[in-house]
C-alpha cells in the first residue's frame, strides 16, 4: 500500500463531510430546494426591474441576466466550497481552531474542509440554467476565445469569491465580534456583481474592481462575450483578465490569513 498523502487526507475529510450530509436525506432535499429558491428569488429582483424598464445602465434584460448568472454561479461555487469560513469566530470560541493547530495539516485547509455545503449545488444548478437561457437570448459572436472565456469565467469568479471569503473572515482574528464586516465584501460583492457596473458610483466601482475584484466575476467578462466596449471606458483587455485577478486574490488572501493566524498565536501585533 502506498504512503498516504496530504491530498489523501483532504479527500478523506471532504468525503466524510459529504457522507454526513447525505445521511440526513430528507433535510438535505429541503436544503437543496431552499438553495434553488434562493437563486429564483435573487433573479426575481432582475425580473421585477425589467418589468419596469427595458434597459438598466445601458444593458438589456438578457444582458443583465447573463451578468447575474455568471455572478451567482461563481458565488454559489465559492460559498459551497469555503462559505463556512465566516464561522471562524465560532471555531475560535469553541477551541476548534486550537485542535486544528495541533494536527499536522494546514489550519486553513482543515477549516475549509471541515464543511462542504453540498446543498449550494442547488443554487449553482439553477444559476447554470439561467446562464444557458441568457446565452440563448443574447447575441454572442462565438469564437474559440469567447468559448474559453465562458468556461473559465465562473471558475475564476469562484476563486475570486473564495479568496474574498477567506480574507474577509480573517478579519475575525482582529475583531472577534466583527464578522459581519466580512459580509459587506462577500455577500455585498456577490449582490453588486450581478448588476451592470454602470449603475454604481465611481467610488464603489473602483473599490469593487481594484480592492475586491468583483468586476472580474461577471461585468467585465460579460462585456467581452457581448463584444461591447465598456461604457465607462475601462480598457478592453481587462475583460480577459479574470484569471489574473483570481491569482492576485489568492495571493492577497493567503497573506491576510497568515498574518491573522500569526496574530492569533501571538506572533503578530
Amino acid at each position: 500500500m502506498a504512503e498516504p498523502t496530504v491530498t489523501g487526507a483532504y479527500a478523506a475529510l471532504v468525503r466524510s463531510r459529504v457522507a454526513a450530509q447525505a445521511s440526513y436525506r430528507s433535510s438535505f432535499a429541503i436544503d437543496v430546494a431552499a438553495q434553488v429558491l434562493l437563486a429564483v428569488v435573487e433573479f426575481a429582483e432582475v425580473y421585477v426591474v425589467f418589468h419596469q424598464v427595458h434597459s438598466l445602465g445601458g444593458f438589456s434584460f438578457a444582458e443583465v441576466t447573463l451578468m447575474f448568472a455568471l455572478a451567482t454561479t461563481a458565488f454559489g461555487l465559492a460559498d459551497g466550497a469555503v462559505g463556512h469560513v465566516d464561522q471562524l469566530p465560532h471555531y475560535v470560541r469553541t477551541g476548534q481552531l486550537d485542535v486544528f493547530l495541533l494536527r499536522p495539516l494546514s489550519a486553513l485547509g482543515q477549516l475549509v474542509s471541515s464543511d462542504f455545503a453540498l446543498r449550494r449545488l442547488g443554487r449553482v444548478a439553477t444559476s447554470l440554467v439561467i446562464l444557458v437561457l441568457a446565452l440563448v437570448a443574447v447575441d454572442v459572436d462565438w469564437s474559440p476565445e469567447r468559448a474559453a472565456l465562458l468556461l473559465v469565467t465562473p471558475l475564476a469568479g469562484a476563486v475570486i469569491f473564495s479568496s474574498v471569503f477567506v480574507a474577509a473572515s480573517a478579519v475575525a482574528f482582529w475583531l472577534v465580534e466583527g464578522t459581519e464586516f466580512a459580509n459587506a465584501l462577500t455577500y455585498g460583492g456577490s449582490y453588486l456583481s450581478s448588476f451592470p457596473f454602470t449603475v454604481f458610483g465611481s467610488a464603489i466601482r473602483r473599490f469593487f474592481t481594484f480592492a475586491v475584484p468583483a468586476a472580474f466575476v461577471a461585468y467585465l467578462p460579460a462585456l467581452a462575450l457581448l463584444g461591447r466596449p465598456d461604457p465607462l471606458g475601462m480598457p478592453g483587455w481587462l475583460s480577459w483578465a479574470g484569471p489574473v485577478a483570481a491569482c492576485l486574490s489568492v495571493a492577497v488572501s493567503a497573506v491576510t490569513w497568515r498574518t491573522g493566524l500569526r496574530r492569533y498565536v501571538g506572533a503578530g501585533s
Partner: peptide, 18 residues
C-alpha cells in the same frame, strides 16, 4: 456527527499513517 471509528480513520488520514 461521525461514529467514533470514523473519527479515528480521519485522524489516521490526517497523520498520514499507513
Amino acid at each position: 456527527d461521525l461514529p467514533l471509528r470514523e473519527s479515528f480513520r480521519l485522524l489516521a488520514a490526517i497523520h498520514r499513517l499507513p
